[in-house]
Simulated assay, not measured.
Amino acid sequence: MPQTVFAPWDDPNEKPLIRFQNVTKRFGDFTAIDDISLDIYTREFFALLGPSGCGKTTLMRMLAGFETPTEGTILLSGQDIAPVPPNKRAVNMMFQSYALFPHLSVWENIAFGLKREGKDKGTIETRVAEMLKLTRLEKFKHRKPHQISGGQRQRVALARSLAKAPKLLLLDEPLGALDRKLREETQFELMDIQEKTGTTFVIVTHDQEEAMTVASRVAVMDEGKLMQVATPDRIYETPNSVYVADFIGDVNIFEGRAHQTGDKVQMIWADGQPPLSCTTSKNFSLDQKCWLAIRPEKIAISAERPQAANTVRGKVIDIAYLGNISTYHVALPSGQMIKAQAANTRRIERRTFTWEDEVWLSWTDTAGVLLDR
Rank of each mutant, 00 (worst) to 15 (best):
A47L: 02
S52L: 13
A64T: 06
F45I: 12
L49Y: 02
A64F: 11
A64Q: 08
A47M: 02
I74R: 03
C54F: 13
C54Q: 11
E67K: 01
T68V: 15
P51I: 03
L59D: 00
I74V: 12
L59I: 08
T68M: 13
E67G: 05
C54L: 12
S52D: 14
T68S: 15
G50C: 01
L49C: 03
M60G: 07
S52Y: 13
L59K: 00
F46D: 09
G72P: 10
L49V: 03
T57N: 11
F66D: 03
L49S: 03
S52K: 13
K56C: 15
T58D: 04
C54T: 12
A47P: 06
G55K: 01
F45W: 12
T58W: 04
F66W: 04
G72I: 04
G50W: 00
K56P: 15
G65H: 08
T70R: 00
L48F: 15
T73D: 14
G65D: 08
A64D: 06
I74G: 10
F66Y: 09
G72L: 07
L59M: 15
T57R: 05
G53M: 05
L63V: 08
L63F: 09
K56V: 14
L59F: 07
L63N: 06
L63D: 06
L63W: 07
M60V: 14
P51S: 12
M60R: 04
T73G: 07
K56N: 13
I74L: 07
M62Y: 09
M60F: 09
T58K: 00
G72K: 04
A47I: 02
T57G: 10
T68C: 09
G53P: 12
G72A: 08
E71T: 12
A47G: 07
L59T: 14
